[in-house]
Simulated scan of single mutants.
Amino acid sequence: MCRYMKSSILVLVISTLVLAAGCTRLPASEETGLGPGEYEGIVNTQEIKKENVSLKEELEKIKSELEDLEKEYLSLAKSNESIISKLQEAESKLDIVEAEDIPKFKIEDTDLNSIVQYLEESSSIIDKSVKGIDIISSGERVVFRTIGYGNVYSQIFIWDEGENEPTLIDGASFDKDGSYEWLDRYILIKSGGKNKVLDIENKKITGLFDEPLKMQLLKDTTTVLLKDKDNKFVLYDFINDSNKQINLDNNKYTDFNLQEDFVLFTGTYTENGVEYEIRARLALDELMEMYEIQRADEAGTASPDTEGTL
């Protein structure tokens, strides 16, 4: 019995020792407060963070390289466009030199200075004994004419800033013996015994009439006082293409002189072998009221008082 009890006690002690050994845990780290498995997770997280930082730096480097490549591409594209533009402009100038018919004008730089420079350079390489380009004005827009091209001796164009090519004005052409002159903000074209008026603002011919013996513009209007071939005094509105004859004896009155605020009609006649000189003075405001002449909505800016002869 005693031996049996000793054996039981020994088995119990051994079992207790085995259980105690199986339940033993390693102490937590004094530095991190974590066990070995948890510490391994922390190490892996730090490595991932380092890798992310490295990837971010590499991404920024790639983005920078792409931006540099994009800038280089844009620079090359711009350079190519400039070269193509210069080639097209050179071809255009060559066409102007070689053209027999009305040439085509075209440029890429469309500011007024570039347009004028283009026309001047084109003109400089033309044989001026045969052809030519004449710049009439270059204020708000460029007005110019070609000389010696096509079936007409001279053709007027209007080139607005911002446009790649000019507008050919239909009907604004004249022969070799023709001429042009400023009529306030309009251009009066004389050719073949006919007069026509170019409305620069609206880019069209607005009036066509027989060339008079004398003509003067009523200030701030689109009406001219003229003496026609029958010695009649006529008020002609070239915008509305209408005319009104002044009631004067054209057998006696043969001339007129338009002043700032009045018009003076003069003439001579013979009676009983005696020659008499006559004058009739009429205030301009009274004349305009009598014949219902309206002033322009905006007074035109006076252009240079010059005449160009072809």
Rank of each mutant, 00 (worst) to 15 (best):
G273N: 13
K252A: 06
Q259R: 15
L217G: 00
L218G: 04
D237Y: 03
G150F: 03
L112D: 01
R145T: 02
L235R: 08
I107L: 14
A21D: 04
L112H: 02
E163P: 00
I169E: 01
M215H: 04
G41E: 12
E277M: 05
E108S: 14
F174R: 08
Y253H: 06
L218R: 05
E120T: 13
K86G: 06
E277L: 07
R145E: 13
G22E: 13
E47G: 07
T270E: 10
D199A: 08
G148M: 04
I136W: 01
E40L: 13
W182V: 03
C2Y: 09
N251L: 10
P36Y: 06
I278L: 13
S54P: 03
D175I: 04
Y186H: 12
A21R: 06
E58G: 06
K71M: 12
A90I: 10
E108N: 11
S179Y: 14
N195E: 15
L225T: 02
N151E: 15
V130Y: 03
E91A: 13
S54Q: 13
K63N: 11
N164Y: 10
N272D: 10
L217F: 01
E140W: 10
E289V: 02
L235E: 07
S54Y: 03
L188W: 02
K232V: 05
K176H: 09
A21Q: 11
R145P: 01
G132N: 07
Y269K: 02
F256W: 11
I126R: 00
D230S: 11
K93P: 02
E201Q: 14
G178A: 06
K104P: 01
E289Y: 07
E201V: 06
A296V: 09
E100H: 04
P166R: 00
T146R: 10
D170H: 05
A99M: 07
I187T: 05
I189H: 02
E307Q: 10
S191N: 11
N195R: 14
S64R: 13
L198H: 03
D220C: 09
E100M: 11
L168W: 02
D127W: 04
G150A: 03
G139Q: 12
Y153Q: 12
E60Q: 11
E163L: 10
Y236T: 01
E58A: 15
E140D: 13
E81C: 04
A77I: 07
M1R: 10
S138I: 00
N243I: 06
M5E: 15
I126Q: 06
S123K: 14
A90E: 07
T146M: 04
A283P: 06
K106I: 08
E65P: 00
E67K: 14
S129P: 00
I156E: 04
E40Y: 00
I246M: 10
F238P: 05
E72R: 12
V43N: 12
L264R: 11
E161A: 11
E140C: 07
Q88T: 07
D305T: 11
G171M: 07
T167S: 14
A99I: 01
Y236V: 04
I156R: 03
S242N: 13
T270D: 04
I293C: 02
L284H: 00
E58P: 01
G148T: 07
N195Y: 10
Q117I: 05
K176E: 07
E57A: 15
G41C: 12
S15V: 12
K176S: 13
A283K: 11
G22V: 14
D230C: 05
